[in-house]
Simulated assay, not measured.
Amino acid sequence: MAENETIRFGIIGCANIARKLARAIALAPNATLSAIASRSKQKANTFAAENQLPATVRIYGSYDEVVEDPGVDAVYIPLPTSLHVRWAVAAASKGKHVLVEKPAALDVAQLDLILEACESNGVQFMDGSMWLHHPRTAHMEQLLSLSHSTTVGPVQFIHSTSTMPVPPEFLENNIRVKPDLDGLGALGDLGWYCIGASLWAKSYNLPTTVTALPDITRNAAGVILSFTASLQWCQGQQPADQAVATVHCSFLSHTSMDLSLCGSNGSLHLKDFIIPYQETDASFDFTFGAKFVDLHIGWNVRPEEVHVDNELPQEALMVQELARLATSIRDCGSKPSSKWPEISRKTQLVVDAVRKSIEIGFKPVAL
């Protein structure tokens, strides 16, 4: 595909996560990497050399240069969360589409500034929840559909975890434990995925109440290192209207990325929902119509392991989707999709509610 037919990406910030997105942009058939920037040109040059970026990639020593570059159509922002508003708004105001790392913002008021800038300038917004773009996610959505012949049924219970055992230097120096850089800590970095998965399972209907549990762990600066929360949906009198989700995220536990969904007819279980065990395929367990056999000495069915292949890594599929939307805006006069901003905003609202529940002594927060 010719460069003028692709969406040209710029990256501002050479954080470690940017390596993955530089690779994803290279793999996406409708995207190309045109520019990168760090706070110093030397660091940007080092990033380009270590990641073997093409010589055609322009290398800058300031973020402004990428934002001002007319040869950049979309900007990926892997900066600390506290800097998202400034640079996302700057990029949108220059007519550039915005892909921002999660958490999208420190609170919904900041996120609204970003979304308003994107909307008023007619550019696409998306956050970096890459797992939503994996074909496994679409396959599971089919089984959650009430019109599917083997539907899970109305989802009544959701359990998700995202935990990782970090080394001591992480707890001392990583930006995710610095209150002035990423003040949400594990709530933003890991909780964004689990809260997002809970909302996804409920078709992005907001819970009626959110409650943090009092097992929270903070560092000396007050940043959250570990937390647990529950989300409750009580929107009617019927069983289908009732649901609860439990979320546990921690920088202090062994690696886990579990997601379990239980409905009236079946259940879905996977242990790698954020990052699949392998790039080329993924799986999940699907159980439908399970009952106990006579005397409760076994089950009548075993879970079916469902395998889903994918041609591209989920990060490249995310880039491909943003580039597709950007191309439609550029070439067909389409409006930016409202799907992705709405997903991010609802996720942010629940993140904010968990934080508020913690601040008021672990009491329920109504949404």
Score class of each variant (00 low, 15 high):
His148Asp: 09
Thr150Ala: 11
Thr150Cys: 09
Val152Gly: 06
Phe157Ile: 04
Thr163Trp: 06
Thr163Asn: 13
Pro165Val: 12
Val166Glu: 00
Pro167His: 01
Glu169Gly: 02
Glu169Thr: 11
Glu169Ala: 07
Phe170Tyr: 08
Leu171Glu: 07
Glu172Phe: 11
Asn174Thr: 05
Arg176Trp: 04
Val177Leu: 04
Leu181Asn: 10
Gly185Tyr: 07
Asp189His: 12
Asp189Glu: 13
Gly191Asp: 02
Gly191Val: 03
Trp192Ile: 11
Leu199Pro: 12
Leu199His: 13
Trp200Tyr: 12
Ala201Phe: 00
Ser203His: 08
Tyr204Asn: 11
Tyr204Gly: 04
Asn205Tyr: 10
Asn205Phe: 13
Pro207Leu: 03
Thr208Met: 09
Val210Pro: 11
Thr211Met: 05
Thr211Ser: 04
Asp215Tyr: 01
Asp215Arg: 00
Thr217His: 11
Ala221Phe: 02
Val223Ile: 10
Ile224Glu: 06
Leu225Lys: 14
Phe227Met: 15
Ala229Phe: 01
Leu231Trp: 02
Gln232Lys: 14
Cys234Ser: 15
Gln238Arg: 09
Ala240Ile: 05
Val244Thr: 08
His248Ala: 05
Ser250Arg: 01
Ser253Lys: 14
Ser253Trp: 11
Thr255Ala: 14
Met257Ile: 12
Asn265Ile: 04
Leu268Gln: 03
Leu268Cys: 05
His269Glu: 06
His269Gln: 10
Leu270Thr: 13
Leu270Ala: 04
Leu270Lys: 06
Lys271Asn: 15
Asp272Glu: 09
Phe273His: 05
